[in-house]
Simulated scan of single mutants.
Amino acid sequence: MKETLNIALIQSPLHWENPKENLLMFEEKLDAISKDVDVIMLPEMFTSGFTMSPQNLDRREGDKAIKWMQSMAKKKNSAIVGSIVYWEEENYHNRLFFVYPNGETKTYNKKHTFTLAGEDKVYKAGAEKLVLDYKGFKICPLICYDLRFPVWARNIEDYDVLIYVANWPKPRIEAWDTLLKARAIENMAYCIGVNRIGQDGLGYDYPGHSAVYDVLGKQQTFSKGEEVLYATLNKEHIISTRQKLKFLEDRDDFSWKG
């Protein structure tokens, strides 16, 4: 149980469809983190880039990436979160892994596959929301396109932190900025988005804009460059703001049926 949660967001270019090079690159970046952090966030599909050709990857790469995450989580004594291409039960998934320092993992399959890129035809969509407990904070991790759907993210579980890992392209980056702030305000939770930078193998540009917003939508950190961003989340900020502004008590009552 902690009163604060220290976050590191790794904003980086990605090697196109090259898990080996991406893992080597991120290992260097993680090793360079000297601050005491509780959670390290990596972008969406951090081992490959946002590929619609998962058959170009060895199906064993997913399990290799999980073992790498477990090894690095133990080494850094920090949870690590990011999504990867994962093959299971005759389907590809855009699957997020939240890996605890002790090696325990929680998973979330992207609910809203990006139809504009044909992701819905390549990856099996998820149907279950994940809310997990970590060091006294309730965290809800989601993936990229999920950001456009506020009902899916609606805070009916009283979570403290909403996380988005993404490959969000330059032409629509204003929507990314706007929606991250909106999700924080409407859910009265910290909202964190980590995006990649650089150009992918299809020629799409990614401008970063990784950011952290507090419960009132105030931006705590933001960047357009290749770097590690840091932020501290404060439990008292969440509690005191919700006690003063009881907006969540007036939320609509509904439940998910999958």
Rank of each mutant, 00 (worst) to 15 (best):
N187W: 10
F149L: 08
K170F: 14
G225T: 08
L180R: 12
S48F: 05
D31C: 00
F247R: 10
K110P: 09
E27G: 12
H112Q: 09
A79M: 02
L57H: 07
S78Y: 02
A65G: 00
M188D: 02
V99N: 03
N18K: 10
I66M: 06
L233E: 11
K138W: 04
D36S: 15
Y108M: 08
D205K: 14
A189F: 05
L229K: 07
A231D: 03
K124R: 15
I143M: 13
I33K: 08
E236G: 04
I156H: 04
D58I: 03
N18T: 03
E61L: 08
W176T: 05
L229R: 05
L142C: 12
W16H: 14
K138H: 08
Q11R: 07
V39M: 05
D253G: 06
I238M: 05
Y100Q: 01
S71Y: 09
T232D: 08
G198T: 13
E3Y: 10
H112G: 05
N155K: 04
I66N: 02
V228D: 06
N77D: 15
A65T: 15
D205C: 11
F46N: 03
G103P: 03
L42P: 00
V228S: 14
Y92M: 09
H209K: 15
L23W: 11
E3S: 15
L5D: 04
V212F: 06
M1V: 07
D36I: 12
A184D: 04
K257A: 00
L248C: 00
Y100P: 01
R251T: 07
K224H: 10
L248Y: 00
T178K: 15
M25V: 02
L162Q: 04
R196D: 03
N167R: 05
V151E: 14
S83T: 01
Q220T: 10
I197P: 03
I84W: 04
D205H: 14
A153P: 04
T221N: 11
T4K: 11
I80G: 08
Y206P: 10
W256G: 06
M45L: 14
S83R: 09
M45K: 09
L5C: 12
K138S: 04
K76Q: 13
I163R: 09
L23K: 14
L116H: 07
P19W: 08
Y206M: 06
P101V: 11
V39Q: 00
S83A: 04
H237T: 15
K20I: 03
L42M: 05
R60V: 06
M69Y: 07
R242D: 01
R59W: 06
D158Q: 09
A182W: 13
Q220Y: 07
K2R: 06
G201M: 11
H15D: 08
S210C: 01
